[in-house]
């Protein structure tokens, strides 16, 4: 097994995370926001796997699995919220739910 430089893996994870963050901050469509969050979760998972493989430890993969679980739960609730939002406001614009502004 040849060695893949772990810092490259981490770099990629960071870039993916930043792209996901960018999506979260930029998109107004709530579906895209949720997708971007999935990208961020995935990037974190990638970072864990890189670390785990570098130290030859299974902990990284376990963390990845926990992140996966979290992502699944999050996406289930999040998409349910999207449906509810669409039913009430007939839109997927995230700015429409800003009634709690100070």
């Amino acid at each position: 097994m040849i060695s893949i430089p772990v810092e490259h893996g981490l770099l990629l994870a960071t870039i993916l995370f930043c792209l996901g963050l960018l999506g979260v901050l930029v998109r107004r469509n709530i579906i895209f926001v949720l997708m971007s969050m999935e990208i961020m979760f995935n990037a974190v998972g990638l970072a864990f796997i890189s670390g785990g493989s570098r130290w030859h430890q299974a902990d990284g993969q376990i963390m990845f699995m926990l992140v996966l679980t979290l992502a699944a739960a999050e996406v289930a609730v999040g998409l349910a919220l999207v449906l509810q939002l669409y039913k009430r406001f007939k839109t997927v614009d995230i700015d429409i739910v800003s009634e709690m502004k100070g």
Binding site: M1, I2, S3, I4, P5, V6, E7, G9, S50, G52, S53, R54, H56, Q57, A58, D59, G60, Q61, I62, M65
Partner: peptide
Amino acid sequence: ERIAGARIVSPKMVGALL
């Protein structure tokens, strides 16, 4: 510092730890 490459972590190890 430069970090060395990766090695395989088998599902068995994961399961045992999990």
